[in-house]
């Protein structure tokens, strides 16, 4: 007997499964999947942007805000000089057209490798409840750019801040239908508490996460 048949067989024996209750069980299962009931959620009301900002900072991210996408490179340049970081970066292909050169930053739009010190990405959306960035993988938005470099800068359009994880799933279902290969939820710099339960930033991923919010006026 295959392992699959053996394991499923013993589960069925434990549950007293027969043909009749399997039919009922399957239709209850499908009804649940169609209804997708939500559990209790903490209230996230008022200004989503302010809440996102506050929660991000609590997670040890730093946050800046600009009015238009065109101003992002200047904001990034300000951050890099304040942190005394080199003005050299890898970015998502979809961000290649921003005026990086004018801001004095050498940006390459390609897959990140381990020698890149700074990765610049956008985000799919962001969660106000916890101050979390949500990044979906695709050829134009590769995962490694937010992971391999020591510094990660994420551009967040204010209109893409939703209240919680449930709203992010709804957005993905509505806008893209199928799930991308990877949906990465990022909440601040990489950290570990493994040695003496003492929190240290920068375990395997970035030491720093800097968020630039774009408050585009309508």
């Amino acid at each position: 007997m295959s392992s699959r048949a053996d394991i499923l067989g013993r589960i069925r024996a434990g549950l007293g499964r027969d043909d009749a209750n399997a039919v009922a069980g399957r239709s209850a299962l499908d009804a649940y999947l169609a209804a997708k009931p939500q559990g209790p959620k903490p209230k996230v009301d008022g200004d989503l942007l302010a809440r996102f900002r506050e929660k991000s900072e609590q997670l040890s991210s730093t946050v800046d805000a600009v009015a238009t996408p065109q101003e992002v490179p200047q904001a990034v340049a300000r951050y890099l000089s304040a942190q005394q970081l080199p003005a050299q970066a890898v970015c998502w292909p979809e961000l290649a057209s921003l005026p990086w050169q004018q801001a004095g930053i050498a940006v390459e739009a390609r897959a990140a490798n381990s020698s890149d010190l700074l990765g610049i990405t956008g985000c799919y959306c962001a969660l106000a409840e916890t101050g979390t960035l949500v990044l979906c993988s695709s050829p134009n938005t590769p995962s490694a750019a937010s992971l391999l470099p020591e510094t990660h800068i994420a551009i967040v359009p204010a209109g893409r801040i939703v209240s919680g994880m449930e709203e992010a799933w709804q957005l993905i279902r509505r806008e893209t239908g199928e799930l991308p290969r990877a949906v990465n939820f990022i909440s601040g710099p990489s950290r570990t508490g493994d040695i003496e339960q003492t929190i240290v930033l920068g375990a395997h991923g970035p030491y720093r996460v800097h968020i630039v919010i774009v408050n585009t006026e309508k």
């Binding site: 929660k55 997670l59 390609r110 897959a111 916890t130 979390t132 993988s137 695709s138 050829p139 590769p142 995962s143 490694a144 799930l179 991308p180 290969r181 990877a182 949906v183 990465n184 939820f185 990022i186 909440s187 601040g188 710099p189 990489s190 950290r191 991923g205």
Partner: peptide, 20 residues
């Protein structure tokens, strides 16, 4: 309140993706 990283992974990489 949330772990630093939390990934939802579905299927293998698509043809044009640079990682995965």
């Amino acid at each position: 309140s949330i772990s630093n990283y939390f990934s939802l992974l579905t299927g293998a990489k698509q043809a044009a993706e640079s990682d995965g």
